[in-house]
């Protein structure tokens, strides 16, 4: 049963990717043929020759990395305050608002203020808007770190002689590392895949990989759209494959072997 569900999961995950791959190499694909009858790599060479796409990809990478670093760092620090606050539930409810609103509503809400503050139509504004969403997510995710068990680890370290700084660097950060890595990847993806905030706050003057992809889709060139969609998938795939998996048992308890 587990094997069947694993196969189903992998199929569900890989089938769209495989379809995009086929599309990106398809030259002639008459209906109802199951596969293209002529193959070419021209979509990829065209993509490489498309002016500005490399810059858009680098821009996406830069914005997403900045958003992930800042959101994870700030989220880590502030999640403790939220987790230990008396009004913890109210604060966590508030932090869920950016998700409830969706990026489009958030973008519309921010647009006017950002225009007035000179943040619309530039990279900083786009990163800041995405950062609001990513930061809220980071705080929610990292609030789960501040359990009584982690507190007990820190207290134990203190009685062994750890200064507050040593407790942070030698106990807390290593314990939190898997969750921080997960948070970094997730917040990176929030920014990387964002389209609405780039469009609304960037106002067409900030081109990212997602906006470029949308242009290809609008132009009706499915081969180019498929190739750029695969390009869009590349960093998240690398991040998901290489990131350290959290060890929930390390924080939840010590089971008998």
């Amino acid at each position: 049963m587990r094997r069947v569900s694993n196969i189903a999961l992998w199929t569900a995950f890989l089938a769209p990717v495989a379809l995009l791959l086929v599309w990106s190499f398809a030259w002639r694909w008459p209906w109802p043929a199951p596969l293209p009858n002529r193959w070419r790599a021209s979509a990829w060479t065209d993509l490489a020759a498309t002016g500005g796409l490399g810059a858009a990809a680098l821009r996406s990478l830069g914005i997403a990395t900045t958003v992930a670093v800042v959101a994870t760092g700030l989220g880590f620090v502030t999640s403790r305050s939220v987790a230990e606050a008396r009004a913890r539930e109210a604060l966590q409810w508030l932090l869920h608002l950016p998700f409830a609103l969706s990026p489009v509503v958030l973008g519309v809400g921010l647009e006017y203020s950002f225009l007035r503050a000179g943040l619309a139509g530039n990279l900083v504004g786009v990163a800041l808007a995405q950062g609001i969403l990513a930061y809220a997510y980071a705080v929610i995710l990292l609030s789960g770190l501040w359990t009584a068990r982690v507190g007990a680890f820190l207290e134990g370290a203190a009685t062994l002689g750890a200064t507050p700084r040593q407790a942070w660097t030698l106990v807390l950060l290593p314990l939190a590392r898997p969750l921080l890595a997960l948070c970094f990847v997730q917040t990176f993806l929030i920014s990387w895949f964002d389209y609405a905030l780039v469009l609304l706050i960037g106002g067409g003057r900030v081109a990212t990989l997602t906006t470029s992809l949308y242009q290809f889709v609008q132009s009706g060139d499915l081969r180019l759209a498929a190739a750029s969609a695969l390009l869009l998938l590349l960093p998240p795939l690398v991040a998901l494959v290489t990131q350290a998996q959290p060890r929930p048992d390390a924080l939840a308890g010590e089971p008998d072997p």
């Binding site: 068990r149 007990a152 680890f153 134990g156 290593p174 314990l175 924080l251 010590e254």
Partner: peptide, 11 residues
């Protein structure tokens, strides 16, 4: 202080 649970550092 030695806790009831050993609380060994998993890292």
């Amino acid at each position: 202080y030695l806790n009831q649970e050993p609380l060994l550092f998993p890292h």
